[in-house]
Structures are given as C-alpha cells and as structure tokens.
C-alpha cells in the first residue's frame, strides 16, 4: 500500500509529551478501555485507528477529561502529562485546568451561535483576557494558523453559522488554537465534511504539527497514513499495536493490525 507523506521536512521526535499507563475506562459497569499503555510524542501527530466501537474516541476523550461531564464514568490508571509529570486523571486534578491545556476539535463542526470573532475569542475570554488589542492579535493569529484568516478577515462580525462546513471546522480549530494548547485532540474532524474540505483540514493538520502535539481519531486509514507520524491500532477497547506510522502501515507486527489495514476486516 502506498503512503502519501507531505514533504514538509518534518522530523520524528522522541520527546515524550504524555505517557499512558495501564489505562482502564468504564461507562458505568461497562469497561470501554482495557489496560492501555501508550506514548504521545511532542509535536508529532499520533493517529488512533480501529473499527467503529473499538474505543478510539473514548480513549481520546480521556485526554481532556470530557468523560467527567457525564455521571457514572470512571477512570483507572494514569495519563502522565509532561513537563509537569502529573497524572491528569487524578481526582485532585481539575478537569478545567486539563482542558485549558489540552483542547479538542469535534466530529461535527460545533461553532457557537456567535460572531466569528467571538467564537475564536471565547477561550481567551474565559481565561480573563479583556484587552481588545490582545484579543484581536490572538484571534488573527489563530485564524491565520487555521488557514482561515484570508477568507474571513473582512467579516469577523458575521455569525459563524454562515460559514461553510469546512470553514466552520477550521473555525473550531482556530478556536482551539487561540489559547495555545499543548495538545490538540481531533475526534474524526473530517467525517462530516466533503472531500475538498477534508483535504484542506488534512493539510492544516500537517502544517500544525510543528507547533502543537496532535492526537487524531480517524476511521479513514488513508487519512491516518497521510497525516500521522505515529499510529495506534485499537480493537475492542484494547491497544493492539502502536508505532511509527511507516512501520504500522508497511510492516505491522500484529496479524490483526495487518488484516485491518489491508482491508480484510473492519
């Protein structure tokens, strides 16, 4: 199978940003994640792949404690965040603090029914930024990084709903970038978009990897191959194989991974 890699001169890094130790996760009595060990390397793109229902989204949502929003969910094990060397799943850790440092982009674009400007500025506002000049500068930066600035710079006051689907998703990425997160989580960010919008988001992710650590869930293997440096294959709540994307896609160690990647099952 052919691997498409954007020629970006991006190098593999082995600096650990986060370490997952023996992570178990339960929805009430149902165990959704089983004993997961994994590394997340700094300023790299790590893709989580696997058949639907394998727990990849559940795993992703552990990183910014989204599961805390709903009752009867609980975690066991650790997700260590560096450089703090702190377990972000610890009950003493404030999920709000975690989410301020680890942001997320969702499956469907979910802009707030506010103006484009206010959407991007929201994260800054809840951090107490009030100075108009700072807000404007950071919003512009975020929109530039999300490759949206040129398209919206003349209509920042427009309602975000008036943007196209792909633009809305880039707006959500800008919203997440505005606060300089350390890790950016993507939960199947292109599954609700058309192929052209998908290509632009993928290009954006490739560009962002020099700036931020990225974890992306995708059901599209080509996408994983195109954008990621590392890939984790999950099945039924377990991490089956983890490694450099080239290795996983060319020479998977595990028979199950190979079957999935070559399309024999999934």
């Amino acid at each position: 199978m052919q691997i498409f890699k954007p020629a970006s001169g991006h190098t593999h890094s082995t600096v650990q940003k986060s370490v997952v130790n023996k992570l178990n996760f339960y929805y009430g009595g149902y165990q959704a994640l089983k004993n997961i060990d994994m590394m997340v390397y700094e300023k790299q793109v790590t893709a989580l792949i696997g058949p639907s229902g394998c727990g990849k989204s559940t795993f992703l949502r552990c990183f910014n404690r989204m599961h805390d929003l709903y009752p009867r969910n609980h975690y066991e094990g650790e997700i260590i965040l560096h450089p703090d060397n702190a377990n972000i799943l610890s009950p003493e850790v404030d999920p709000i603090e975690v989410r301020m440092r680890i942001s997320m982009v969702f499956q469907k674009p979910n802009p707030f029914p506010k103006s484009i400007f206010e959407n991007v500025a929201y994260g800054l506002r809840i951090r107490g930024v009030k100075r108009r000049s700072i807000l404007e500068e950071r919003v512009e930066n975020a929109l530039r990084n999300a490759a949206l600035w040129e398209e919206v710079k003349d209509r920042l006051g427009d309602l975000a709903f008036n943007l196209s689907g792909g633009q809305q998703q880039r707006l959500c990425i800008a919203r997440a970038l505005a606060t300089d997160p350390e890790i950016l989580l993507f939960d199947e960010p292109t599954s609700a978009l058309d192929p052209i919008a998908t290509a632009s988001i993928e290009e954006l992710i490739s560009d962002l990897r020099n700036k931020v650590t990225i974890l992306i869930v995708t059901h599209n293997m080509q996408q994983a191959a195109r954008v990621s440096d590392y890939t984790a294959y999950m099945y039924m709540g377990e991490l089956i194989e983890f490694g450099a994307t080239d290795t996983i896609f060319i020479k998977p160690k595990n028979k199950q991974t190979e079957d999935y990647i070559t399309g024999r099952f999934g």
């Binding site: 989204m66 709000i96 603090e97 440092r101 919203r175």
Partner: peptide, 8 residues
Amino acid sequence: EGAYALGA
C-alpha cells in the same frame, strides 16, 4: 462540549 473543551 465545545465550551467545556476550551476549559470553560
């Protein structure tokens, strides 16, 4: 979830 994910 969009708001929570930004740390609200």
